[in-house]
């Protein structure tokens, strides 16, 4: 068992508080009409942050779904910068710069799992050290891609860690309507790989599970399916009203097990956290997101960027369309 040091736990808490604070700011920006749809991170912080703190950022890949970016700070400030562009709807939001090993958000649920298997497989073919960690939800586990990817990963012994974040809800659909299985980790049996369930609100438990799965993968022992059990404390997204379907008593109980408060309490007992640290971290979080948002808003964008990066070079047809688009814009401008 690998327990993160107290210093590591403090770093994990800092990233968790930053993610929670920035998620709140982003929610408000959406309500002000300044950004598009936002998926709040509340309740997912310990799982995402602790999992990525168990990785080697130089070699290990993170393949997110869409709720993770604010909690991936460990992979560099560029993640937030790109995420703000992404939230604005700027195409550059999809270009997380080289050599950062994080893929952009994935909206088509479950499709990222085959990508992670392919990346990790590719690393073994190139004899590169490193693994791929892929995030997906309880709902995504119902997609065919989960089964196809898990099955292939088992067969080829891919160094991939499949992290199922079971937040109990797929928008309004509860887990018992998602699967009749006892647990999502049980599904590992079908792939012939280990399946582990952890308390996803416990940063130490998540860190340990990912660390062990990672070491297994690096030792050539293949993939692991980890189910991190948490509770979605916020809405699915800014377009959702969970009061229509989340039982208030369940939410109340889940709030008592809030992962951020839980780790903060632990570190307060160790005199590693206090109100000042909390306030300073929240202020830092807001400063970071506000400056990233300002930078995103001032990032230039020309209309014919619409046609960029579809192919390595424009086809005859795209070249014509580019010419026509620019001509139409010039006519309109006159």
């Amino acid at each position: 068992m690998t327990i993160p040091s107290d210093a590591q736990l403090r770093e994990i808490l800092v990233d968790m508080v930053i993610a929670r604070t920035q998620s709140g700011r982003l929610w408000n920006l959406q309500r002000q009409g300044q950004v598009g749809t936002v998926a709040p991170v509340d309740g997912h912080e310990a799982t995402i942050v602790a999992a990525t703190h168990a990785l080697d950022t130089e070699h290990d890949w993170v393949v997110p779904q869409y709720r993770e970016p604010l909690a991936l700070r460990r992979y560099g400030p560029e993640i937030l910068e790109c995420f703000m562009l992404y939230s604005l709807g700027h195409p550059a939001g999809g270009h997380i710069p080289d050599p950062i090993r994080v893929l952009p958000n994935q909206i088509s649920l479950g499709t990222q799992i085959p990508h992670a298997v392919g990346i990790s497989w590719g690393m073994t073919l190139r004899s590169e050290p490193g693994i791929a960690l892929v995030f997906f939800g309880d709902g995504s586990s119902s997609e065919g891609d989960f089964y196809e990817a898990g099955n292939l990963a088992g067969v080829i012994n891919a160094p991939v860690v499949m992290l199922c974040v079971n937040n109990r809800w797929a928008i309004s659909t509860p887990v018992h309507l998602q699967t009749a299985a006892e647990s999502f980790a049980d599904k590992a049996a079908a792939f012939g790989i280990p399946g582990v369930t952890v308390d996803g609100n416990d940063a130490t438990a998540v860190y340990d599970a990912v660390d062990e799965a990672r070491k297994r993968a690096l030792a050539g022992l293949g993939p692991t399916l980890i189910e991190a059990v948490i509770y979605r404390l916020g809405a699915h997204t800014t377009a959702d009203d969970p009061s229509r379907y989340v039982p208030p008593e369940d939410l109340e109980a889940a709030r008592r097990d809030d992962p951020v408060l839980r780790l903060a309490c632990h570190l307060r007992e160790l005199d590693l956290w206090d109100d000042v640290a909390q306030e300073e971290t929240e202020a830092e979080a807001l400063g970071l997101i506000d400056s990233a948002f300002d930078a995103a808003k001032s990032t230039p964008l020309t209309p014919d960027a619409l046609l960029d990066n579809c192919f390595s070079t424009d086809t005859q047809r795209l070249a014509r369309q580019r010419f026509q688009l620019l001509q139409a814009r010039m006519t309109e401008a006159n």
Partner: peptide
Amino acid sequence: GATVGLAIA
């Protein structure tokens, strides 16, 4: 899907 990952790698 795996070709996407292989290409990324």
